[in-house]
């Protein structure tokens, strides 16, 4: 596994995403309570916390799937409160899900091609004819998607419907679909959950390579502390919807509260 992915190798820019005092509740359940943190351009930011801490809810707020009742989210300098998921997508936010959300009846290739949809300009009339510009456009995007397929080493399952693929591969295809959008901000909800060590190592490599080669900013939720400590630049710790700690992996690892509330609880 790659080690010590510190800020010296890559360029970390200014703040791309700023989450301020965000609160979200479902009826009586307070999923998030005045959470504040920021994400800098080009960094790998981990969100950790015990089950039900509000990690997935946080990602859902960022990509417009949930609408927080309080607080503000500033993305690329624009403050916003409410937006639809497809608008977030149009602004360069892509994500994967904790429970894989692939299009099960479609092939690996088609699933990843859907990630290109916002880059495709030809309307349905052009496509009905499938000549000239429409065909050229399809080929260009196909070529891009093939690069992703090569990168993720999933050439062999290109034409298979994803519903029948093993779990680990589905996670990989889902990452591919998110990458196809060439996002500026990539949100990964437990990309390595349920994987064996080998699969996890592959996934870590992909995440690091994406960050390294394309400079994509990544926010990832992960339970495996080894992985988090290895690949992330900074870590946010949530517990019962509240921000518990925020800092480098070493800071967080040494934080007394975190050890009590989270690490301790896990190792009990």
């Amino acid at each position: 596994m790659a080690n010590g992915n510190g800020g010296n190798r890559r360029r970390i820019g200014g703040v791309i995403l700023n989450v301020e005092d965000v609160s979200l509740s479902f009826g009586g359940v307070q999923a998030l309570e005045q959470v504040t943190f920021s994400v800098r351009e080009g960094e790998i930011r981990a969100i950790i916390g015990p089950n039900g801490a509000g990690k997935s809810s946080m990602l859902n707020c960022i990509n417009g799937f949930y609408h927080p009742q309080g607080g503000t989210i500033t993305y690329k300098g624009n403050k916003r409160k409410q937006m639809r998921p497809h608008e977030a997508a149009a602004q360069g936010i892509a994500r994967t899900f904790q429970n894989i959300a692939l299009f099960k009846g479609m092939t690996t290739l088609d699933n990843i091609m859907t990630g290109r949809n916002l880059k495709m300009r030809r309307n349905f009339l052009w496509q009905a004819l499938y000549i000239g510009p429409a065909r050229r456009e399809e080929m260009e995007h196909r070529a891009f998607v093939e690069q992703i397929i090569d990168f993720l080493e999933i050439q062999a399952i290109r034409k298979q419907p994803v519903g029948k693929l093993p779990y680990g591969l589905q996670k990989r295809v889902e990452l591919g679909r998110a990458l196809a959008a060439e996002p500026d901000l990539l949100l990964l909800d437990e990309p390595m959950a349920g994987m064996n060590t080998e699969e996890k190592e592959d996934m870590c490599r992909f995440v690091l390579d994406v960050n390294d080669e394309f400079g994509t900013t990544i926010v990832l939720i992960e339970h495996d502390m080894g992985v988090v400590m290895d690949i992330s630049d900074r870590v946010v710790v949530l517990d019962y919807g509240k921000l518990l700690a925020d800092g480098t992996p070493d800071d967080v690892r040494g934080n007394k509260q975190v050890i009590d509330a989270y690490l301790g609880a896990v190792h009990d």
């Binding site: 990509n63 799937f65 099960k104 479609m106 399809e138």
Partner: peptide, 23 residues
């Protein structure tokens, strides 16, 4: 076989994910 078809199938298979992808 093009984008329109994929957008339909995406909505069919999982409408939430389709929207998050940008459809």
């Amino acid at each position: 076989r093009g984008r329109v078809g994929r957008s339909w199938m995406a909505i069919r298979d999982m409408d939430i994910a389709a929207e998050i992808i940008g459809f």
